[in-house]
Simulated scan of single mutants.
Amino acid sequence: MTDTPERITFFGRLRNNFLTGLIICAPLAITIWLTFAFIDWADSWVTPYIPQRYNPQYYFDITIPGLGLLIAVVFITVIGFLGKNLIGRSVVNFGESILHRTPLVRTLYKSLKQIFETVLKDQSTSFKKVGMIEFPGPGSWAMVFISTEAQGEIAARLNEDGEEMLAVFLPPTPVPTAGFLLFVPKSKVVMLDMTPEDAAKLLISGGLIAPAWTPKTISE
């Protein structure tokens, strides 16, 4: 006796069509909303500081979305260009010397600068690789982002037996904005082929969105 396929009712088809449409439209709508929200946020910070004679909105009496963001990008780019030459570097060093003499502010500035230099530097290798470690115990595996090799005092104290140590970041699910910094022997880290972006999607989705993978590296 063969099982007859279950017939989908009219309302069932409507529900399936609605869910399909929701999967298509929701990410698109949220992306557009976040984009315009970011543009409005940037405009609200920058536009008030633009002199009226240089503001096109003053002459045309219309709001130009993204004008503040565009000016901010141009301004930051110009600052970066000037900061690379001798005169600009001298001005930057002078400003930093004042900040370094200011209590409380110097600690905050040094920390923020170190974070941005590490993340945005072209030659930085931070968070370009993903791996797996046994955590919290044998038989249980957790995904980690590879930060860098252990350096300085940590490397000197942990590498006494010649085992190279890696600094890894263990993020939680589903919001990987905070986590644990762990120093793990390199031999205990299973390197993955997936990109940090794919790993972040996997973490945020709670394992539901797994990136496609072809096991070509295993045969190599």
Rank of each mutant, 00 (worst) to 15 (best):
V91A: 12
L208E: 11
N17W: 14
T118H: 01
S147T: 13
K216V: 14
L203W: 04
F36T: 14
T173S: 15
E134W: 03
T2W: 08
P5N: 05
I218N: 07
E160G: 05
I62N: 07
R7T: 07
E153N: 10
S97W: 03
L70H: 03
V190M: 14
P136Y: 01
A72L: 15
L86R: 14
F38G: 12
T2L: 10
L19S: 06
I8H: 10
G207M: 04
S219P: 04
R7H: 06
P56V: 09
G21C: 11
P196V: 08
L203V: 15
I62E: 12
F81H: 11
R157G: 04
T2R: 11
S44W: 07
V175A: 09
S124T: 10
K186I: 10
E160R: 08
S140K: 15
F81C: 11
T2Q: 10
A72M: 13
M191S: 07
F145H: 00
I76L: 15
T107V: 14
F169R: 02
I71T: 00
R157V: 12
A150H: 03
A29W: 13
P56A: 02
L158Y: 02
L99Y: 02
L82S: 06
N16W: 06
F180V: 08
P211A: 07
F18M: 09
A167W: 01
S219F: 12
T125V: 13
Y59H: 08
F127C: 10
L70V: 14
P48S: 07
L181Y: 09
G162E: 04
S205C: 03
A167P: 00
P215C: 05
D3P: 03
E164W: 02
I79G: 12
D40T: 05
W141R: 15
D43F: 00
R7F: 04
K121H: 13
F81S: 12
N85F: 13
T148D: 15
E134T: 11
R53A: 10
W45L: 15
W141A: 08
W45H: 11
E117W: 04
V105F: 12
V92P: 00
T148F: 03
I146H: 00
F145W: 05
L99D: 00
Y54N: 06
I79K: 07
E6N: 09
S126G: 05
A200N: 09
L34W: 08
M165C: 02
F11Y: 06
P185Y: 05
I30Y: 10
